[in-house]
Write a protein that binds this DNA or RNA. Structure first.
Length: 468
RNA sequence: GGUCCCAUCGUCUAGCGGUUAGGACACGGCCCUCUCAAGGCUGAAACGCGGGUUCGAUUCCCGCUGGGACCGCCA
């Protein structure tokens, strides 16, 4: 389907990092625009000057780029569009769709508390509605919200959602400091940017009728709206910091790949039959509004890890190496060797995150090993001393230090000494890595290299003497 | 408290009136095996409850229950 008219946007408020939930909203808007060959716009909702920061903007931009959510227009900064908002306010005021209010914040807060205490809905009481106050410093502008009738949200995902206008409040459009508020600028900008489809979190559904009424007051047909079910934590409450990492960047630092994150996020609230694996191109091709689910989804890190593992295994050695470079603190010179390439392939079978690679390959980058105590007493036994010594001698004589040659040496030692493969392999593994798990033993010996293997076997053999 | 949203395995979900209710993650077992993984096979695991509508409801409607969101001069 091609629809050049489709224009979507992602409009975060730059007050923190890029949240997982926001990222999914961004993704869906991005995918829908791309799917329809439309336009995806990035807009910073930074009208709250107290809370918006440059760092937050940068973090959001950075996260978007990392995920590959490239925008076609923007970033548009709302704090630079004051004049546009001012024009619209004047229009609303002139048309009697808005009014000036001088009720103090303290008084309102008091009334609000009282209302809640007496079991009523906290709502502006309309004191200034008909006072026709003039605009002055320290006064706010409110929307004159119709107090009868029904406003129905025609939601792309939920269907018809009617709201009784009596439930709606006279929202503040302009703060007493002169800056416009969210509910107002979101409407003005979506009009100005000719947005055709608004996909946003479910938490905005209650705002939508107010915004619809604003569109009406402004004489504009609203865009199509779709409210995405929220992403939840394990306790089924809205995903937040207390559930663990919620910043996209945190996942990057923890060694996740953007492909995995995108795939995971896409499947939270959207599906395509029984398919689980989607590249960005697949998603652009297959994404549609019809298959967006209606119920909230719990963020399940196990599945993210599985996907990450999947993409880790799919990456080329070259791509993986460059992805892993930032995670390696010392020993980066090892990253260019054929041994590293071999090890990397083995590691990608076993590790679920880039971060795990460094841990799992610790013995490759560092020479100071600490033997696992239990394993040491189990595998560094006196009867292993001879076979290990034999092995060490023969490995030292090898001219071609490759896996077939290493395997031959192992076979010979096994034959001569009569020990079983398992204890020998485990003893060698412990000697070379300090642990009892690693890639296959021939591969391991090859990867560690002749010099280091000999050195580590010598160390191990002396350990046996000490304990004997 | 008011308004609104939601409801299929533990989790993500398929299902769009008639299915042995399917897949995936996680979990158990078996195989493979020098360890750890990977892989293969396999197992356990769900339609919240009560009313309708219908020949027939997981599916449509209503109620209940449960969970969630929102009620700012935040967005």
């Amino acid at each position: 389907m091609t629809n050049h008219a489709v224009r979507t946007r992602f409009a975060p408020s730059p007050t923190g990092y890029l949240h997982i939930g926001s990222a999914r909203t961004a993704l869906f808007n991005f995918l829908y625009a791309r799917h329809c060959d439309g336009c995806f716009i990035l807009r910073m909702e930074d009208t709250d000057r107290e809370r918006s920061t440059k760092q937050a903007c940068d973090a959001i931009l950075d996260g978007m780029r990392w995920l590959g959510l490239n925008w076609d227009e923007g970033p548009i900064y709302q704090h630079q569009r004051q004049q546009l908002y001012e024009e619209n306010i004047e229009k609303l005021l002139a048309d009697d769709h808005a009014y000036v209010c001088d009720c103090s914040a303290e008084l309102l807060e008091e009334k609000r508390k009282k209302a809640i205490a007496s079991g009523e809905k906290p709502k502006y009481d309309g004191t200034c509605r008909e006072r026709r106050l003039s605009r002055e410093k320290n006064r706010v502008v409110r929307f004159k919200c119709p107090q009868n009738g029904t406003t129905t949200v025609h939601d792309l995902i939920k269907g018809e959602v009617p709201f009784d206008n009596r439930e709606l409040d006279d929202v503040v459009l302009v703060r007493s400091n002169g800056t416009p508020t969210y509910n107002f600028v979101v409407v003005v900008d979506d009009i100005a940017l000719r947005i055709t489809h608004v996909l946003r979190g479910d938490d905005h559904l209650n705002n939508t009728p107010k915004q619809l009424l604003l569109y009406k007051a402004l004489g504009v047909t609203p865009p199509k709206m779709g409210h995405l079910p929220l992403i939840l934590g394990e306790d089924r409450a809205r995903l937040s910091k207390r559930h663990g990492a919620t910043a996209v960047q945190q996942y990057r630092e923890d060694g996740f790949l953007p492909e995995a994150m995108i795939n995971f996020l896409a499947r939270l609230g959207w599906s395509h039959g029984n398919e689980e694996i989607f590249s960005m191109d697949d998603l652009i091709k297959k994404f549609n509004l019809e298959n967006i689910g209606t119920s909230p989804a719990v963020f399940n890190q196990e599945k993210l890890l599985w996907l990450n593992h999947h993409y880790l295994r799919q990456h080329s050695v070259k791509d993986l190496t460059s992805a892993i470079r930032p995670h390696i603190k010392a020993g980066q010179e090892h990253l260019t060797t054929p041994q590293w390439q071999k090890l990397l392939k083995e590691l990608s079978e076993r590790c679920k995150t880039l971060k795990e690679f460094t841990k799992a390959a610790n013995y490759f980058f560092h020479d100071d090993l600490t033997y696992d105590a239990t394993a040491k007493s189990k595998f560094f036994t006196l009867q292993m001393k001879q076979p290990l010594t034999q092995l060490r001698q023969q490995l030292a004589t090898l001219e071609r230090f490759d896996e077939p040659a290493i395997e031959t040496v192992f076979k010979q030692v096994l034959d001569k000494s009569g020990v079983k493969m398992k204890p020998l392999a485990q003893a060698v593994r412990l000697a070379l890595t300090g642990r009892t798990f690693s890639p296959g033993i021939y591969t391991l010996v090859y990867v560690v290299g002749q010099q280091r293997t000999i050195k580590r076997l010598d160390d191990a053999i002396s350990q046996i003497e000490e304990t004997a």
